[in-house]
Amino acid sequence: MSTQPIVDIRDLHVHYGSSHILHGINLTIGAGECICLLGRNGMGKTTTVRSLFGLAQPSAGNITIFGDDRTGVASHIIARQGLALVSENRDIFPNLTVMENLVMAARVSKSGSREWSLEKTLSTFPKLTERLDHMGDQLSGGEQQMLAIGRALMTNPELLVLDEATEGLAPMIRDEIWSMVRAIRATGMATLIIDKNISTLLDISDRAIILEKGRIVYEGSAQELAKKTELHARYLGV
């Protein structure tokens, strides 16, 4: 709608104890954009996401969400600004049913939209419909991932962050999840995706960012990066 970006990260530094993890990251995510964050293990992708959500404390820099400075703010407040995180370990609540996992997160969006209702979420992930009464820990890995994404959508976010959404899943399930991500993206929701499936990711995304040792070493169109195979070899080890 507006030109104001959803997220604007400026010169972000993060330390874990004495190790300097992020060295001045700049990242802007506009409405409806799909950005992929690439890089080998330990390069700071997850830390970037964690600090965006207030789960890791920045030592310097600013995080602005919808124009307001949210650096170092508690994560529940950040989530209520319209950000939803699907983390790499899924974090399904094992002691709640699939239905409870979904409805407990339900919330209207910042702008008052209820677009992602239970019905719409279930129609996006029809597999979950058959499992509504099952406990969270009775699901397969793929179903858990769908539930984690569904739960995030139920908060009606403006920006959906997927951190290693297809990690450890069978190729068929992975393809299923990617097609759902495409469907979500088609609704105009902004997405930030971290994954190791570089070709699929570059195909889905508008923009690609490569992190190397806590610094951004490439930022540009995903289509461009898809052609620059020498960069894949240098930074992504493929």
Binding site: F53, L55, A74, S75, H76, A79, R80, A84, L85, S87, D91, F93, P94, N95, L96, E100, V103, M104, A105, R107, R151, A152, T155
Partner: peptide
């Protein structure tokens, strides 16, 4: 449901927007 969610994973509940 929220308190049971907190029992199993408090950080996740915060990331979902619950104080």
């Amino acid at each position: 449901q929220i308190i049971q969610g907190i029992k199993s994973n408090e950080q996740r509940m915060r990331a979902l927007g619950f104080p």
